[in-house]
Amino acid sequence: MQSEVMFAGFGGQGILMCGKLLAHTAMQVGYEVAWIPSYGPEMRGGTAYCTVVISDRPIGSPIIKNPAHLVAMNRPSLEKFAPVVKPGGVILVNESLIPVRSGREDVDEILVPATGIAKELGSVKAANIVALSAFVARSGIVDFEAMREAVREEFSGKEKFLPLNMAAIDAGRKSALEQPETETA
């Protein structure tokens, strides 16, 4: 089994780190993983995205045109990538910044006000962790507690950010689980 998750948003939203944390978690629990960034001029303020491939066997193509899931942190990302997500996947929409929907009926679309939640918790910088947590809780792609461990590890040495991000994890899961699952066609 192979699954691919695309994280997309503005440069500066912690998109790449979000993907890295998922990849790290998947590696820790024994999967083969690859984290593939977009690199280049789009890193500067434009759309940043990365794809995480998780598999139980060696990963072949790192070129993923149709990911299984999408975490969209801003509107251009949702508009650009929602159409290519495979049917049956999760599309997470950062509701705080995205006033539109994916328009897909064959996916599990969840609306998470990641930026708003993070702001309430104390810093919009934690929006990526809110989204990651919500996505992992909803998709079950990796063990939730393992993901929490990976985040904890990432912020070890940056102790003052730890409580914020731990709170972001709880808030993200809550937001994802309180929404009813979309009926997929």
Binding site: K20, V33, A34, W35, P37, P62
Partner: peptide, 10 residues
């Protein structure tokens, strides 16, 4: 190639 350089893998 650029992908080998930019990709993260275990």
């Amino acid at each position: 190639d650029g992908l080998i350089g930019q990709m993260m893998e275990p």
